[in-house]
């Protein structure tokens, strides 16, 4: 039985481990397009601010991978999936057969129409690679502009501020909420950040970025002219599902799965940030971002791939550490 897993993030690697722990004989191949051994994305800030070493980011060592008998193919991207032939195709035209397939490709920040032309000038912060690049630049950076949403955005702002940078946060909303359920914070997040010295520009957005002498000039819709050393920006956080584009696998924003994390196609499962699953309270499909969900879904997908029959139950709240303050967060809009 050949289990192929696309995406070496939390969900993918948890599934791989679950499969191997339950069935030593199973063949497990994990294909991840990042260059590194599987790491804990949520610890990147800690790494960036030097509170942990690079090794501590890892889910497990090469030795452990070997011991488990998981074949990891890092730095490789899956281009297409052909469910009928049970084949996937990699970026370099390699064709690989699978018996069971798990799509655990996560999500990533994306740029809308307005920002896309300035991609060259924009820095991201969602992967270890981004972090390593940023780490090199960091000593020269004084002023930062951040435009975006979601908890990873909040994470970024806090981290930059913690490192003593001058931070300007631009948001389309009236308040800085980071799409967190306001109930949990009682509106104090905005003020909290301002108290910490973060400048917040509300109801505005970036429309132009230009390189200047030793940094960037940023123009907003409200015709604010700002200068900065670095610009972080994204419009939305989007599931990475380009690889199913040409297949019959059903999707909305993410890959649609049932409670057993099966997709519409036989022997293909999906888990983590890339899936949309039915939320009985919301009465709609939703994307359940976040680490705990990815962990849980990875485990369940792995078991089901081995022929078990386990159901996923919606988890709602996670605990989030914000500049020394413990917050409870819900990860949806």
């Amino acid at each position: 039985m050949k289990h192929v897993i696309i995406g070496a993030g939390v969900a993918g690697i948890t599934a791989a481990r679950t499969i191997k722990e339950q069935d030593r004989e199973a063949e497990v191949v994990v294909i991840g397009d990042e260059l590194f051994l599987p790491y804990k994305r949520y610890l990147l800030s800690e790494f960036l601010s030097n509170s942990i070493k690079r090794d501590e980011l890892l889910f497990f060592s090469i030795g452990m991978l070997k011991e488990l008998g998981i074949k990891l193919r890092k730095g490789e991207h899956v281009k297409t999936i052909e469910p009928l032939k049970k084949l996937i195709k990699l970026h370099h035209n390699e064709v690989m057969h699978y018996d069971k397939l798990l799509i655990a490709t996560g999500g990533s920040p994306s740029l809308g129409l307005v920002l896309r032309p300035y991609k060259k000038h924009i820095s991201f912060y969602s992967s270890l690679y981004d972090t390593l690049v940023l780490k090199e630049k960091l000593p020269e950076i004084r002023k930062c502009i951040v435009f975006g949403n979601g908890v990873s955005c909040l994470d970024l702002i806090c981290m930059l501020r913690n490192l003593g940078k001058q931070v300007t946060y631009i948001t389309k909303e009236e308040q800085a909420t980071f799409a967190l359920n306001e109930y949990d914070f009682e509106g104090e997040l905005h003020t909290f950040l301002e108290e910490k010295g973060i400048e917040i520009i509300t109801e505005d957005q970036i429309v132009l970025i230009e390189e200047s002498d030793n940094g960037y000039k940023v123009e907003t819709i409200q015709q604010k002219m700002l200068t900065t050393d670095i610009v972080f920006a994204w419009d939305y956080y989007k599931p990475n599902i380009a690889c199913i584009e040409d297949s019959a696998i059903e999707k909305k924003t993410g890959i649609l799965v049932n409670v057993r994390l099966e997709t519409s196609e036989k022997d293909i499962y999906a888990a983590g940030d890339c899936v949309e699953i039915y939320h009985p309270c919301l009465k709609n499909y939703w994307i359940n971002f976040g680490l705990p969900n990815a962990l849980e879904q990875g485990k369940i997908a792995g078991k089901n791939m081995l022929g078990q029959n386990e159901e996923y139950k919606i988890q709602e709240a996670i605990v989030f550490n914000l500049m020394g303050k413990s917050l409870k967060a819900r990860w949806w809009k």
Partner: peptide
Amino acid sequence: DVAEEDSLAS
């Protein structure tokens, strides 16, 4: 197409 066993990357 490149077969898995013939692929350097694999």
